[in-house]
Amino acid sequence: MLQNRYRVTSIIRINRGFGNVYEVEDRGKTKILKVLNQIHGKDRRAIQLFRQEVKVLSHFDHPGIPKCDSYFQYELNEGERLHCIVMEKIDGCNLEEWVEKNQPISAEQGLEWLEKITSILKVVHEQKYLHRDIKPHNIMRKDNGQFVLIDFGAAIRINLFYKTYAITIYSAMLLLGKGDETDGYTAPEQNRHYCTPQTDIFALGKSFVFLLTGKFPRDKAMYNEKTEKINWRKYAKGVSDEFANIIEKAIEHDPKKRYNNTQEILNDIGRIKKIVELI
Rank of each mutant, 00 (worst) to 15 (best):
L82A: 05
L211A: 01
K226Q: 14
L36A: 05
P188M: 10
E126Q: 15
Q263L: 14
F216Y: 13
L121R: 01
E88I: 02
I156Q: 15
G64H: 02
R16V: 05
L278R: 15
P66A: 00
N231R: 12
T186N: 06
W232P: 00
A107R: 02
T196A: 03
S10P: 02
M87A: 06
I11F: 10
F216D: 11
H131L: 09
Y162P: 01
S119G: 10
K67S: 13
I139L: 08
V148K: 02
G110V: 02
I247N: 06
R13D: 01
E264F: 04
K215A: 00
E78L: 11
I269M: 08
H193L: 15
Y170V: 04
Y74H: 15
P136D: 02
R192H: 03
V24A: 00
P104F: 08
N37R: 14
D268H: 10
G214V: 12
N261H: 01
T227I: 08
S106R: 00
E78Y: 11
H137Y: 11
A155V: 08
I265Y: 06
A250H: 05
L33A: 00
L95A: 06
K42W: 08
G19A: 15
K34S: 04
K135D: 02
N138P: 10
G145R: 09
N37W: 05
L211R: 00
I230K: 04
E252I: 09
I65G: 07
E277C: 07
M140A: 02
P104M: 14
H83D: 15
R141M: 15
G205T: 01
V35N: 03
K229N: 14
Y194T: 11
I150M: 02
S171P: 05
Q109A: 03
L114S: 04
I117S: 08
N231T: 10
Q103L: 00
E225S: 13
T213C: 03
L176P: 03
Q198G: 10
V276C: 00
Q127L: 12
E97K: 10
Y6A: 01
A155T: 03
I158W: 04
N159F: 05
